[in-house]
Design a protein around this nucleic acid. Structure first.
Lengths: 196, 196
DNA sequence: TAGATTGTTAATCGATTAACAATC
DNA sequence: TAGATTGTTAATCGATTAACAATC
């Protein structure tokens, strides 16, 4: 196992009201095999007790550490259009340790307005903001036309992780990680089952 | 292979200016192994010519058929907030055979306004719209609080595919397929590599 | 002690890839 | 014919799972 399986994230949220939990229970919860759960947990340096199960509190903090949920990551959103606004308003980020520290846009009419309680700043400030606020993740929510430009600028400024919502393939240095959320692909996958 | 690999979709868009294309070229394009390309295409009932490659036009139409890109799917967007608006404005849907036939919202202030050239309708009309316009896919872009309610209503109305943007797990009949786009998970995956 | 559950091995399964005869 | 590329087999690789001794 080179990388932590993502299903473990659901277990990082286990209610501590239950003091222990068996691999069988966790498997049912996460929809995987119990042997897999035991194997993955043992890889983390397991702390189960035979005949009893795993201590939930211990497990939670262990998983959170392993999954990087204890650190806060500073996020910049580039593009204050509908998508940028939707992302800013999205409630789920803080829960998982992401802090939106800036929203920037190129449109002078948008600069200075508030989106989700954050003032939109000028894209001219991008490099400055990234450096000053230790931004680690950039979310590109611009038209595809300018996505590559933005990617160049954020990577130039030192960002090493990009979440790209623009329907465009970005060309970045190998050290930069890009994840693309392609809404069409998501719909595509849904249609597999429509065709029986 | 139980299901068509999604990487084939990139090949369905091959420029027909090039009359033939080798498995090697396609592999480079899609970032997979050439043997895999040949195997998958042969599964579709292959039409390559040894020593030459695959006919691009033939391949395109074959892939489009196999991937279901020839049919048009009617989509309803539930929620005309920032996310709903972002999705409506998203240019990529039509390209892949999805037609947004309605946007509905519960807020009377939003009903009647235009989003991406489509008039927002009342959520009261949901069942009526689904039936009348043969809606097959629902996109849930509402607050999580009401997501389950919406899911109940759209499945009740006959929708069998849901793309869920609300950070909530939906409880639906087994015959209904739900895909959840969880923005936090996407960020999560990005952070794996931040931790070296 | 008896029952439950871990941790780990070995078996299984499936997916990926190398290799090459077939053949354009 | 010579070179290129397919289609497919067999080998490899990795991931999943069954099974069970260890042990709480």
């Amino acid at each position: 196992m080179s990388r932590l399986p993502i299903y473990l994230r659901t277990l990082a949220d286990l209610p501590p009201s239950q003091t222990t939990c068996s691999s069988e229970q966790m498997a049912a919860l996460a929809g995987v095999n119990s042997a897999q759960v035991r194997k993955d947990l043992s890889f983390l340096g397991s702390h189960g007790t035979r005949g009893v199960g795993y201590g939930v509190l211990e497990l939670r903090s262990q998983l959170r550490r392993a999954l990087g949920l204890n650190t806060d990551y500073a996020v910049i959103i580039v593009g204050a259009g509908n998508l940028g606004a939707a992302l800013s308003n999205y409630g789920g980020f803080e829960t998982w340790g992401f802090a939106v520290v800036a929203i920037v846009d190129a449109d002078p009419a948008k600069i200075g307005t508030e989106v989700a309680g954050i003032q939109v700043e000028s894209i001219d400030q991008l490099e400055h903001i990234v450096a000053e606020r230790s931004v680690e993740i950039a979310i590109i929510a611009t038209p595809s036309r300018v996505a590559q430009d933005v990617a160049n600028r954020v990577t130039g400024a030192g960002v090493r992780s990009i979440l790209n919502f623009a329907p465009a393939v970005l060309d970045v240095p190998a050290t930069v990680k890009v994840r693309r959320v392609d809404l069409s692909t998501e719909l595509q996958i849904l249609t597999y089952h429509l065709q029986q």
